[in-house]
């Protein structure tokens, strides 16, 4: 009787080609649609149309006024908080806000201090956000100390 040589066990191998094709297609799809997500947040501004607010305004409770001036290229040239000139230094602005409202007991919510931003029309929006950042708080370690939460804009200047 002839005995077959069992030493040469045949290697059973799956045909991988089609799977690799699909897997590469998937990989290409994910690589092409990949986009690094930048985290975003909001500065909330509650601004009803002037005069439509039913709340009675206390004439002694006037908002702080921040005036931002720009050159013809939209670059910030000067800032003034309640007529106090601050140059273009946002840290100076923050220090002045801290002086004006104090930091010992920051008032939150509707009763907190208010600021009105009056900006030149062509000032770059980036500077407005930087000034809003400066007046709305600062970071102490990982915690955010809030200063002014109520922000509104003056009428646009043409």
């Amino acid at each position: 009787m002839k005995i077959r040589n069992r030493g040469e066990a045949e290697k059973s191998s799956l045909n991988m080609t089609s799977m690799i094709d699909v897997v590469f297609l998937l990989l290409i799809f994910f690589v092409m649609t990949f986009k690094i997500v930048e985290l975003e947040g909001d500065f909330s501004v509650r601004m009803p149309l002037a005069g439509s607010d039913s709340m009675t305004m206390d004439p002694t409770d006037l908002p702080l006024k921040l005036r931002l001036q720009a050159d013809e290229n939209g670059k910030l040239t000067s800032m003034a908080l309640n007529e106090i000139s601050l140059g273009t230094d946002f840290d100076q602005l923050r220090a002045n806000v801290v002086d004006l409202i104090g930091t010992t007991a920051p008032v939150e919510g509707e009763d907190g201090p208010e600021i009105e931003i009056d900006t030149d029309y062509n000032l770059r929006y980036e500077y407005v956000i930087r000034s809003i950042t400066a007046v709305s708080g600062y970071k102490q370690g990982n915690e955010v100390v809030k200063l002014i939460e109520k922000i509104k804009f003056a009428k646009p200047r043409r």
């Binding site: 909001d42 500065f43 909330s44 501004v45 509650r46 601004m47 009803p48 149309l49 439509s52 931002l68 939209g74 900006t119 030149d120 029309y121 062509n122 000032l123 770059r124 929006y125 500077y127 407005v128 956000i129 809003i132 804009f153 009428k155 646009p156 200047r157 043409r158």
Partner: peptide, 22 residues
């Protein structure tokens, strides 16, 4: 221009919208 953003806010205010998020 910051004024363009202010214009957007003004138009929205005219439509009685009052909550804005920058």
């Amino acid at each position: 221009a910051a004024g363009d953003v202010q214009e957007v806010i003004r138009v929205a205010q005219e439509q009685k919208l009052e909550n804005f998020a920058l």
